[in-house]
Design a protein around this nucleic acid. Structure first.
Length: 409
DNA sequence: CCTCCACCGGAAAGCCGGGTCA
DNA sequence: TGACCCGGCTTTCCGGTGGAGG
């Protein structure tokens, strides 16, 4: 028997795996018809020689903002080419292109100017871009995705872009800003806000039924016939709907479920695979967050995993004592309890630990801490850090302290 | 009803690394 | 280049508090 026979004989679940990835931009967006219609309407002046208003789009992650805009952009450019309308669209993700300089340089490049990616004064690049737009007479549509990432560093750039029209004779610039941060608006300078959000478009979260439609549509493209057990799509949709109606999460869940089924060489994606996928996504998220924690927080969390192995719940004071012990073992300066208290709140909001502030009457008021996540997984992730390696030596000793509740200084 | 525990959590100031500007 | 500024992290200080026990 050839080593690969098993793989060859197993039923192929995937027809096209990429359809389920974030980067995939479908031709067809269920339940976004209204937003597409509005966007098309708002942008139509571009094709008729007018100037559209600037547009501000917001909605939570996974509500189809980017996909919708990209789809409309694609259609716009096609039709512009056909009509010779001279519309140029540029999509910029501000998480990657994250300074005023880079935004302008990207635009310059799109217009055929050769601007180095660093080095020039920002206002010179601005002048260059302006001249390029003016001389080519294009109608430039700039999409700034995740614009909230830009605001702190480059508020001025946004401002100058929103005002560029007054300096142009025979060209036009229109801006679409996209943000998933609803608080973003309150951070923004009022001048900018008013010109940026002449029109607003809100993308509401999907509900379970809508997510189901989206998943069905993708599943048809992604999987071979008959590999889905009944109820799998519904379950994925329901779970994602509970978590704020994020289509990206729903698709992730379906993809991971399929991957698990594939790995188990099952011929069908079953409910149990979805359950496993939920667990896996959760753990992966946890491990990733723990990995990226700063050192002090890692030590603190490590202390808590040690305590958690012998007692279900404990208090800030107890965690702090163990934490201090560990710090001295590896000669790291311990933080104050005030600071640790903040770190604990952060860990809580990250969902790594669960804590409630309770009063034990005579015995004070404190945060009661539990660790609901898998302690072993946490420990493993923490021990990856070479700076915590040393602590394994003291594990037993420290655990004893935690168990006996001997908290001396 | 009052006390008093063991911490919470706000305010403000200090420290530090990085970036900016003359 | 050095003065300066900024934002993030941390410390210091301190007023506040729910409820068991008296």
């Amino acid at each position: 028997m050839n080593l690969f026979d098993k793989v060859l004989n197993s039923v192929n679940i995937f027809k096209n795996r990429d359809v389920l990835r974030h980067s995939y931009a479908p031709e067809n967006l269920p339940h976004r018809e209204e937003q597409i219609r509005q966007l098309v309407e708002l942008l139509s002046p571009l094709l008729k020689g007018g100037t559209p208003s600037n547009i501000f789009i917001y909605g939570k992650t996974g509500t189809g903002k980017t996909a919708t805009v990209k789809l409309v952009l694609k259609n716009l450019e096609e039709v512009s080419k056909r009509l010779n309308a001279n519309v140029v669209a540029q999509y910029i993700n501000c998480e990657i292109v994250d300074t005023a300089y880079r935004v302008l340089a990207t635009l310059a490049k799109r217009l055929g100017k050769n601007v180095p990616m660093t080095g020039w004064p920002t206002d010179q690049v601005y002048e260059d871009v302006k001249n390029a737009i003016e001389s080519s007479g294009v109608k430039l549509l700039v999409v700034l995705d995740e614009i909230d990432k830009l605001v702190k560093r480059a508020e001025e750039a946004i401002y100058s872009l929103t005002r560029i029209n007054s300096e142009l004779e025979n060209a036009k610039v229109c801006i679409i800003g996209i943000s998933n941060n609803l608080k973003f608006k309150s951070f923004l300078d009022a001048r900018i806000l008013s010109s940026l959000s002449e029109e607003e478009l809100v993308f509401p979260p999907y509900n379970a039924l809508q997510l189901e439609d989206i998943l069905k549509q993708r599943a048809e493209m992604a999987f071979n016939e008959g590999v889905l057990e009944d109820g799998v799509i519904q379950l994925c949709a329901a779970i994602a709907a509970q978590e704020h109606g994020d289509a990206r999460k729903a698709l992730d869940l379906l993809r991971v479920s399929a991957e698990i089924a594939e790995r188990e060489s099952d011929s069908k994606i079953r409910i149990k695979h979805v359950r496993k996928a939920v667990k896996k996504i959760e753990t992966d998220y946890m491990v990733e967050t723990v990995r990226t924690l700063p050192l002090q927080t890692k030590i603190l969390l490590y202390s808590m995993t040690l305590i958690a192995e012998s007692r279900e719940k404990f208090t800030t004071g107890e965690a702090y004592c163990v934490y201090k012990k560990l710090c001295s073992k590896i000669s790291v300066e311990a933080l104050t309890q005030r600071r640790v208290s903040d770190l604990l709140s952060e860990l809580d909001s990250l969902g790594v630990i669960n804590s409630v502030v309770i009063s034990k009457g005579r015995y004070g008021r404190t945060r009661e801490i539990r660790i609901d996540s898998d302690v072993e997984v946490l420990k493993k992730a923490l021990e990856e850090d070479y700076r915590l390696q040393e602590l394994k030596k003291y594990e037993e000793e420290t655990k004893k302290i935690a168990k006996l509740e001997v908290f001396e200084f």
